[in-house]
Design a protein around this nucleic acid. Structure first.
Lengths: 328, 328
DNA sequence: CGGCCAGTTTGCAACGTGGCATGCCACGTT
DNA sequence: AACGTGGCATGCCACGTTGCAAACTGGCCG
């Protein structure tokens, strides 16, 4: 059995309470006492029992990060930053993968975690806004990336509509006229995809171009394989596009590979813009032009909201910028 | 305040203990009672308090995954699988990033987590074997990937020496004679890099080729940027190699980009083999030839070891295979 | 010389849960 | 009718910690 406060107290010849005071850096402990207790702590190898501490204090120091999948580079990069920021604030991050499954998302939203965590950072995929509204769990929640039907929940977002519009306008400015959008999520409640589609359409409309349904390509998931498949379809179609705006870098990297498979020059014949600015895109050949959300800021803002303890739901917008590299 | 057993008990008109019995699926509860209690649970939205449960049971259901960084694709993919396997066994994974810092590794090794976790999956970077041996913490530990100086700790590994030899032999079989190794970690205690170097050398020796120090390229970290830099140096050297074996796919992807920067054809002028088989390498142009460790198996074996509760330290070897794609 | 205060140490109680042992009831058996 | 048995429900306690408030110490001021 691990040593507990009582063991240390006996060893040092003081009360349990005094040992606790030493462990918790309480101000009024005589230096001599502190030293003696510390020696006993080291000698016995005492470590505070988190369960007991949590039970007493009412806080666990744990934060759940709920994301579709940790091995998607955008989420991996976001998770890395979240873990770092959280640690700086004395919090530990616990990962929940939903696989983009709405059912699982709903479960986690309604506190399947019991009192295990002090807060939840939730990056929703397809959960219904109604589910958010009907939440009875009292654990603080911050949404990452959802914005439609803000049902009284804290949000950290980037301006997806503006970002998508900028990306599309960039392609228009380079003289592209037949611009496809890859990443549409039909029948899904995914708000992010909807917003990026809206931004894309808005840019086209601004340039006086009609929306062409054939150029709005749906995909099942947002992975490289989906982008690959979608791009092949586009390139093999009767009237292939001269540019493609992908809703994620992963899609774009798959599309890039598809262009290579078909011997289509990028950006010569087809320009390509992604979204997320993941590390892979900086080293691809050619390097990916992409929308870069400020992930550090997102992680910071999210934890700010989570720990601020305010009741009024707030919506915070993190900055983004277009990073022009080689694909378009 | 969240409802507790007592609140549910009052609401249902039974004892606290009976509610507990319902929650824990105890056998002898009359169907009618069970139903009534369940109704109260639902009505009040009761969730068991993990801290109290943990304190009482002595187990937390948490497992720490200690890795250098979650946003490195290999670790991201490993983490994704670990989280999935753990969940299937009723465990939750908590991520600790060491950044490859030996000091942080040592801390975590010596139980900085208190009694927070039931076990630790540890993917060491540069921690000294002596630190492993001097561990006093009683929390079960499984090492992922370390093998030198096995100081009485459970291991899950792949045969790095054999894998590296196979990769190098593959290049030799394709007629390459001047093969560089990128990823050497001088002055680091990193065992993995040492083993891959050993396998590389062994293959060269087997082909009767001398080891050329100029071809064993050290890098600071194992990221794309490091591979990029190392490859540029190799290509700009007086006698560039005709093949490069990178110790990770990330290094290889950086090297691939460097070859493109210098207009060097891959695999025409320089062949390239990576290690890890991460998703990115399947879609790169050209697609990466690589050593593929069975990550699913690694995650399963690691959790098997962790939960088996045996005392005798065991070493388990997960399978790997060479996946030949386009770069070599 | 008494009282007060800052500094220091301590005992008690409670956080919410599950193990244990026991009580209780109805029914069937001897 | 007494007894045993299986099904069901319950009370008490401890898990290891910290908040609270009280208690003790010595020094210094009035």
């Amino acid at each position: 059995m691990n040593p507990k406060l009582r063991d240390v107290a006996e060893h040092a010849g003081v009360s349990v309470r005094t040992v606790s005071n030493v462990v918790n850096q309480f101000r009024y402990v005589a230096p001599a006492t502190r030293e003696r207790v510390q020696a006993s702590i080291d000698a016995l190898g005492y470590r505070p029992n988190m369960a007991a501490r949590t039970l007493r204090r009412g806080r666990t120091g744990l934060v759940a990060l709920v994301i579709p999948e940790i091995d998607s580079p955008y989420y991996a990069e976001l998770a890395a930053r979240t873990v770092r920021v959280a640690e700086a604030r004395g919090l530990t991050v616990l990962i929940d993968q939903t696989g983009g499954d709405a059912e699982r998302e709903t479960q986690l939203l309604h506190g399947r975690r019991g009192q295990l965590v002090d807060g939840v950072l939730f990056s929703p995929w397809g959960v219904a806004p109604a589910e958010l509204a009907s939440r009875t769990d009292t654990v603080p929640l911050v949404l990452l990336g959802e914005h439609d039907g803000t049902a009284g929940v804290d949000h950290v977002v980037i301006d997806n509509v503006a970002a998508a519009r900028e990306a599309t306008e960039h392609l228009l400015a380079r003289g592209r006229r037949r611009i496809a959008a890859v990443g549409v999520q039909p029948g899904s409640l995914n708000a992010t995809a909807r917003q990026r589609l809206a931004g894309y359409r808005s840019a086209l409309a601004g340039a006086g171009l009609p929306a062409d349904p054939d150029l709005e390509v749906p995909v099942r998931r947002l992975h490289r394989a989906d982008g690959h498949e979608a791009m092949l379809r586009l390139l093999d179609s009767p009237r292939p596009p001269d540019a493609v705006f992908c809703f994620t870098d992963e899609l774009a990297l798959g599309a890039l590979r598809a262009a290579a498979d078909r011997g289509v020059a990028v950006p010569g014949s087809v320009a390509l813009v992604g979204f997320d600015d993941v590390e892979d895109g900086r080293f691809s050949v050619p390097a990916l032009t992409t929308v870069s959300p400020d992930k550090d800021r997102i992680a910071e803002l999210a934890l700010d909201l989570l720990t601020s303890g305010s009741t009024s739901p707030r919506s915070v917008i993190a900055p983004h910028r277009l990073v022009v590299r080689e694909t378009g």
